[in-house]
Amino acid sequence: MEVLEATIINQDKKESEKVFEELYELAFPLVAKFVSKMGGGLEDAKDVFQDALVIFYEKIANSQFVISISQEAYILGISKHLWLRKFNKDYKSVSLDDEEKEISIPPDYFPDSNSLQLMQFLEQAGKKCMDLLRAFYYEKHSMKSIAQLLGYSTERSATVQKYKCLEKIRDIIKQKSIGYEDFAE
């Protein structure tokens, strides 16, 4: 019985969570060691490492992504770039090997403050839609499973809901960007 329950719980765990659990034990010690060597604290190490995990997870979601080094070495490489970027360090202060030099951080990973404010606002004002759109575009759920998950009777009604959400979020962004006066004219 216990075994069965454990299996069910495990299946319930999100893919991302499983990946993070495995990589945390494997790669965090390396990144912590690097950050400590560079004079950073545990909080810095955690921050850099968690961003590196997110970036790595995005990369592996892309089926064309292949790496020639181990996962933990790759994550350490991302972390080095993040360290340099976040703390505005001189690139000469960190030695990068050839593989590490090839690693890139998504150019839109550090958003401007306007986009950040919008996102924080929408997180409150449009949470349901934000969650639906995220599930649809990033969690690889089919429309069928989204429909089940969110309690829509058919795939079609879930699809309509997706477009309604796109429209709703778009209009909030529009309003916030243009300002009410211009918008009404």
Binding site: L118, M130, L166
Partner: peptide, 24 residues
């Protein structure tokens, strides 16, 4: 503005992933 929606949803997704990493 629709392009901006995709950008903001991508940011939201990253934020949620980072929260999951923090739970771990």
């Amino acid at each position: 503005f629709q392009k901006k929606v995709y950008l903001i949803v991508a940011m939201y997704h990253r934020k949620k992933l980072k929260e999951e990493a923090e739970v771990v």
